[in-house]
Amino acid sequence: MAKPRVAIFDFTGCEGCELSQLNFEDQLLDILAQVDIVEWREAMDDKADEYDIAFVEGALSTPDCIKRIHDIRRRTKVLVALGACAVDGGVNAIKNLHPIEEVRATVYGQDQYLFPTLPALPLSAVVKVDYNVRGCPMTQAEFLRVFTSLVMGKQFEEPDLAVCVECKLNENECVYERGMICLGPVTRAGCNSHCTNFGQYCIGCRGLVSEPNLKGMNEVLTSHGLAVDEAWKRLQLYNAYRLQGVRA
């Protein structure tokens, strides 16, 4: 079997997800042994015409991004979104909460006409995405599961359950017991409840579960005497795109 040809691209984001791929130090050689990396701006100069798998990081936020993602989709058999920005729009989508002209003027000032900008979009708003690797930065263990599934020609099953599940498997004390806001009940597991394992609260970086009960979440906050507006600000940190038009 020929090795899959892999390309890696980045759009609007901090490139933290790609860097966390480079941080795979121990596994990088094993990864490289199984694929041919044919395009990766952050680590090499070559460019290719076609690929079996494209890993794409970052949100779409300019007209040029839209053109490029269509181009990538045409060239690749499988498209994988890497990290919160690519999967859900991520923190970039916070700008969507403000009028786009205002955002543009604030960021680029008098040069604003040189920089066309769009409301930030997840990849899936424009092209078909085959698999997601969620998290900010992307969850490495999930990347490995997606990667090995692709190499083995298996379907990757995306987790669709709340972080609460992993908290229970790890027998963590519930963050609400300590009187803090936690986004775990509506956030997708798959991180092995990383933050709450270390005494932190969940900030929702892996995005919402497929059917979050946001009204129920408001009730939970209220009944615990916690601030609903503060919780919604936190929810919007990673979910501003998905929550457009949804009110607290």
């Binding site: 042994a33 775990g184 059917e211 009960n213």
Partner: peptide, 28 residues
């Protein structure tokens, strides 16, 4: 009101349902 979080199942001393998954190492 229910968030569908599964906590009630997972803390129950008489619940015993499980999921089975296979994972391969990075070298496949």
């Amino acid at each position: 009101a229910c968030l569908g979080c599964g906590t009630c199942n997972l803390v129950c001393p008489t619940c015993y349902c499980f999921n089975v998954q296979e994972n391969v190492d990075i070298a496949c």
